[in-house]
């Protein structure tokens, strides 16, 4: 399986992701208390996504070692994230629970914060089906 990235650069993907999230009606409707920061680690690229009250305030592409703090991390191989970026992902690449139980995804850090924001984080990850692969 060789899915293609739709983002030519990490910076372009970061901007497209922030736009998609900030214009998403579901997150707008339910994100009043959606506040957290997390690392999306795609091995070849990484991003720190910061959200305040439902709005993505900053996406840092390929942060340096001590650049940006985050509360939890979602890590997987570049190939796994490319599958997440398909319009209709194949089985086991259709969500962070599926890929964590059955593929190489790891959920690390303060998982309680992930659980507290699970509804909207789940939606953000599904936006990859529209935005495209982060890597």
């Amino acid at each position: 399986m060789s899915a293609q990235t739709s983002a030519p650069t990490a910076e372009a993907w970061a901007e497209a992701f922030a736009d998609a999230s900030n214009n998403d009606t579901e997150i707008q409707a339910h994100g009043k208390y959606f506040t957290c920061s997390y690392l999306l680690d795609a091995t070849d690229r990484s991003y720190v996504i910061q959200v305040e009250s439902g709005r993505v305030t900053h996406v840092t592409a390929n942060p340096g070692p001590l650049d940006v703090a985050y509360q939890f991390a979602i890590r997987a191989s570049a190939d796994t994230w490319r599958e997440f970026g398909q319009p209709v992902p194949a089985p086991m690449f259709h969500g962070i629970w599926a890929a964590s139980f059955q593929r190489d995804m790891k959920l690390e850090g303060d998982i309680l914060v992930l659980m507290q924001n699970l509804r909207c984080v789940t939606r953000q990850v599904e936006l990859l089906r529209v935005v495209g692969s982060p890597v």
Partner: peptide, 29 residues
């Protein structure tokens, strides 16, 4: 593997954790 404390953890919204935690069990189709 699914007998997890997260389903009723008092520091998270259990209703949403149960609902969104099982969301991925469904097919995108």
């Amino acid at each position: 593997g699914f007998y997890l404390d997260w389903w009723q953890h008092p520091h998270a919204n259990a209703a949403q954790v149960c609902a969104s935690g099982t969301w991925d069990l469904m097919a995108p189709q």
